[in-house]
Nucleic acid binder design. Structure first.
Lengths: 211, 211
DNA sequence: AGCTTTCGCTACGAGTCGTAGCGTAACTGT
DNA sequence: ACAGTTACGCTACGACTCGTAGCGAAAGCT
């Protein structure tokens, strides 16, 4: 679980502690409000009402709507895992289907693009998104590659810098394609689509992995 | 140029005509306001002031902020072209670099993701984005493939439905990767990145044969 | 001319924002 | 038990934006 609040990191060992139950209620209420209203019509006052807390409590813990929604949506990605499915192709298909399932939720659809749009003018927000959402996805790419190299499906990397660049590229291709399919083209990333995508990606990887 | 206003399409041949200069001024002012304030802090009142028109004029022509920004940003994509660069690889690299250049503009960065996020809860808006922005990009994929088939770089398609699915897949991969690289990873889609991306995509498309 | 539509301007109620102030609740150390 | 410290719920507030209505004047057509 991500420690969303960074204020008073280790100060205040005294006094009344913050309610952990309130945190969970607020984040759940935020997701419910996203489903009901969407990003643009979501107000912190309504979230507070849904969560059964005072509006001021929200402002004491989060700087604003952006930060709150990032934390609320980040929890959706807790379920992302990469079980060993025996082959690189199966691993890719599995994780892409998981990612697509998360993106299919209405709260993720309306919130993810919105906070990314906001982050283009808010560097701290971009960093928060990176650490609590993006990096967690990116790690799966690294795990998948290491596993494929252990199987002998991909050659080991010699140049570390080049390996990092390639991993970043693959990540942008995979995540970008699923997001674009789901949100821009607005069509489901179902099994058939994932199979086609994986086939093209794998052909591109096994042929180009030398550089 | 996209005809953004769909109301009174052929009625009202009489009376004072709408000022075309005001339209251009409003769209330019919208882009300027996006650069200055970003999506979330942009208000129609400020756009009206920038454009030198009354706020009510904005509401007479556009249903709201979403529609206005879509029209304003759509004009950025007018410059997208696909000159024949001699090979499929060169064509892909060229159009991806063009697309990346557009996405690098601050007004496109902050607006595109925001309107896509809005469109997940607004079907007419999604349709507007599709016709005025997405389809224009998608046509380049079809042109590029037809050209590559004429050169013999890609085999002709037998099954039309399968060909459509493949084109849609390629489009999501290309556009998604560039968008994700630019907005989520927040790193430039420069020539080196585009070359790496194109190499992987081409290997995936042509099968592992040539390279 | 007469008709029609747009334009600029002003004003308005409604809603949201983020904050301040207050009294109370919860927990800690002596 | 008691004082100290912090979080909480509640109310109220000024500032701001929204989208609309109403008015008189301007611009075009027949």
């Amino acid at each position: 679980m991500v420690n969303g609040m960074r204020c008073r990191s280790q100060a205040a060992r005294t006094g009344r502690p913050r309610s952990a139950a309130a945190d969970a209620a607020i984040l759940a209420a935020t997701r419910a409000a996203l489903v009901e209203l969407g990003w643009s019509k979501l107000t912190l006052g309504y979230v507070a009402t849904l969560a059964g807390v005072a509006k001021t409590t929200l402002y004491r813990r989060w700087a604003g709507k952006n930060e709150l929604v990032v934390d609320a949506v980040a929890e959706l990605f807790d379920e992302l895992e990469l079980p060993d499915r025996g082959s690189l192709a199966a691993d890719i298909e599995g994780v892409v289907l998981q990612f697509a399932a998360i993106l299919d939720r209405p709260e993720a659809k309306t919130a993810l693009m919105a906070v990314v749009a906001e982050s283009t003018r808010d560097e701290p927000l971009r960093e928060r998104i990176r650490t609590s959402i993006v990096d967690r996805q990116k790690r799966l790419v690294l795990e998948g590659r290491a596993r494929a190299q252990a199987r002998g499906e991909l050659p080991p990397e010699s140049d570390q810098a080049a390996a990092d660049r390639t991993a970043a590229l693959i990540f942008d291709v995979v995540a970008g394609a699923v997001v674009h399919r789901t949100l821009v083209s607005a069509e489901p990333a179902d099994e058939e689509w994932v199979r086609s995508f994986t086939r093209i990606l794998l052909l591109g990887l096994t042929g180009a992995s030398g550089g």
